[in-house]
Every structure is written in C-alpha cells, then in structure tokens.
Amino acid sequence: MKTALVTDGKYRSSIAAVRALHRAGYRVVVMQTRADVKSAPAVSVSKSCDDFRWIDGACADADYAEKLLSILKEYEHPVLFCVGAVTLNTVAARREEFAALANFLIAPKETLDALNDKESVHQRALELGIPVPREYDGTPESYPVVVKPHCGEKFGLKAADRYAVANNEAEFNVIMEKMQRYDPSPIVQQKITGAGAGVSLLLGRESELLGALCHRRVREYPITGGPSTCCESFYDEKMIDEAYKLIKSFHFTGLAMVEFKGDCILEVNPRVWGSFPMTEAAQSPIVAHYAQAAQGGQVTYTAKDYRTGVKMRFFLNDTVAALSYLKAGRVKEGLRGLGDFFTAKEALGAKGDGKVMRAYLKKSLFER
C-alpha cells in the first residue's frame, strides 16, 4: 500500500491533508515534534491517521532535518506532505537529500524566500502588469495605509500581527516604530477596500498548473483585520490566471495561496495556508493531485473541479468573530455569523470522524 507522511500534525490544516490522502488510498503517517506541543494533536485520533509518530525536540532544532531523514529511511519512497513552514523550508534547503528518500513537490529555498518577500512579489506583479496596491516611500501622502514587514513569518509573528493599519500620521509613526523592531524598512501600502479572497494553486515540477481553488473571506478575527474565520468557495477564471501567471514567473513548484483584495494581489503564501481545510469542504482533488504528481503520475488541470458556494467556518474563532461584530454595532454581520452555525461546514468536522473535533475543542479550551 502506498504511504504518505504528513508533518506538523499540530496545525489544523494537517487534518484536511490526512483525510484527503487516506481517501486517495494512502496509508497516512502523521508526525509531530514533542517540544512544540503540550499533548498529542487532534489529528492523531482521526480514523484517517493510520499511524502517529513523535519526533524528539523541536522543528527549530539544528538536527531536525536529520531526524526527518532518519524516519523517511524506514519507508519505501513515501509521499512527503509538509504542513508547517519550518519543515517546508528545512526540506527545501536540502531538496536533493530528501528527494532520494521521498516524493514531494517543493520549490527550492531561494524560490520560497522570494515569494515570502512581499516587496519581491509586489515588484514582479508590476512587471507583469498585475494590479497591486500603491506603495509609499517615507510618510504617506494619504491614509489609510497598511504597514507590514517584508516577511512577518520570518520574525515569528502571528498572522494577526503581520500588518497594521494606520488611519493618520500619528498612528503611522507609532506603527512604524513597532514594525521597525522586526524590519528596518517596513512596506507601506495603500489600504485597498473590497472583499478579501484567495486563489489556492498546485504547480507541478515544471510549474505547470495542476489545480486551483478560489475562496472569499466572509468573516475574520480580529474583525479589524485578521485571519479568516469563515470563507466561501467560488470560481473566478481571471483571478486564477493572474495568480498562476505571478507564481509561475518564479518557477514555483508545489502548493501556494495568492491573496487578493479587490482587484489587487497583496501577497503570496508559498505553503499550506490557514484556510486550507476548504480543499476538503469544497471537495477539491488538490491534495490527491499533489500526491499523484509527486510520484510522477500524470495530472491534468481541470477548471472548477470543486464545489462552489460552500461556506466553511472554524467554530471557535468564528463564534468569537460573530460576537465581536455584534459588540462593534455591526449587527447584521454578527447575526449572519451566528446563523452560519447551522449552515456552514465546520472546517475540522467530517462524518464518522467526530473524535477529531472533540479532541481539538478540548485542547483549545483547556490547554491555552
């Protein structure tokens, strides 16, 4: 039986990957570093998880790559699916060594670094004629503006802390002082209004398009600008074309999500992203195609090969978001959020696999 190894089981996105790989006929082994969690992650009790393995130490340890390589040697060229950014970069930095033991679609480290650099992405989009927000040097000419480091993840910032909005010069000066602790030259951009959306893509070894999925943000937390707590699948050929044109120009391989606001591209996440469970909710074959292509199989891109109009929510985060909208006086948005409790798909839920959601709630409520 084919084997797939999924890293970083602590992340919610790992649950979607494990279920999709299991359904595609793989024996799924989930790994997790002991020092990075307090207890076994929720995915370990999933019916789709055939085996769970601890890795001593943390992802940040100098010998983490050696530990991964040692585990891979125990299997016969398995599919390797990296969920966490640290693991992804670890494998990317030593691609040849890992490729001798496993099958995967991961871009070189320099490509990941370029796509993680928001300024690099901004300049490439301009060269390609793709709309992006206006940037300012020094004090902005008008407000509001968004201030963010070139790569917030590099500095260990949580998603909600990777940017801040300044509505006037006084706020701008305070935010700049804070951001310069991480990046001496933060990026300052015009704040774009409009709906936030993402285009998730899978590119093959030759940067050919193998899969695409669009989602729009419905709610986020913090409600002033933070990670998505509820999103909805849709299809937009133009957005897919622009997102693919951009990351293909970097000769990218693997999974990535391109963020849009209005008609503009904001940034690229060249890795498994926060709203990744939408691939399961919308019944996208993108994970199965990843495994198939990683093993050298033929995968042909099919447009709109997933369900549209599917709403997906993260129960705890989205409930807090809905209550925050109500508290802020945005009653319709808050009530709509509470109403979605009965209509939206739970990101971590699956028929016949209820232990995962119960384990996640227990960990979230009692370990934090």
Results as ranks from 00 to 15, higher is better:
3 T>S: 01
12 R>N: 14
16 A>Y: 08
20 A>I: 10
21 L>S: 00
23 R>I: 13
26 Y>C: 05
27 R>G: 03
45 V>E: 03
45 V>N: 07
47 K>I: 13
49 C>A: 08
59 C>R: 15
59 C>M: 07
66 E>S: 14
70 S>T: 11
79 V>W: 05
81 F>H: 10
82 C>H: 11
86 V>S: 15
89 N>R: 14
91 V>F: 03
101 L>T: 12
110 E>H: 06
110 E>S: 09
112 L>C: 08
118 K>S: 07
118 K>I: 04
132 V>H: 05
132 V>T: 12
134 R>N: 02
136 Y>H: 15
141 E>C: 02
142 S>T: 15
143 Y>W: 09
144 P>A: 00
147 V>K: 01
151 C>W: 15
152 G>T: 08
156 G>E: 04
158 K>L: 14
170 A>D: 14
175 I>R: 02
178 K>D: 15
180 Q>H: 07
184 P>Y: 03
187 I>N: 12
193 T>P: 07
193 T>H: 08
197 A>P: 00
202 L>A: 06
206 E>G: 02
212 A>G: 08
214 C>W: 01
214 C>E: 09
224 T>L: 08
226 G>E: 06
230 C>V: 10
233 S>C: 04
235 Y>R: 11
238 K>T: 14
239 M>S: 08
244 Y>D: 12
247 I>Y: 01
250 F>P: 13
253 T>L: 01
258 V>R: 03
262 G>A: 01
266 L>I: 13
272 V>N: 00
273 W>Q: 01
274 G>E: 09
274 G>A: 06
280 E>H: 13
280 E>P: 02
296 G>N: 10
300 T>Y: 04
306 Y>K: 00
307 R>N: 11
307 R>C: 09
308 T>V: 13
309 G>D: 09
315 F>A: 10
318 D>V: 00
319 T>K: 09
321 A>T: 01
325 Y>N: 11
328 A>Y: 06
328 A>I: 02
337 G>R: 04
337 G>D: 09
351 K>W: 12
357 M>G: 12
362 K>E: 15
366 F>S: 13
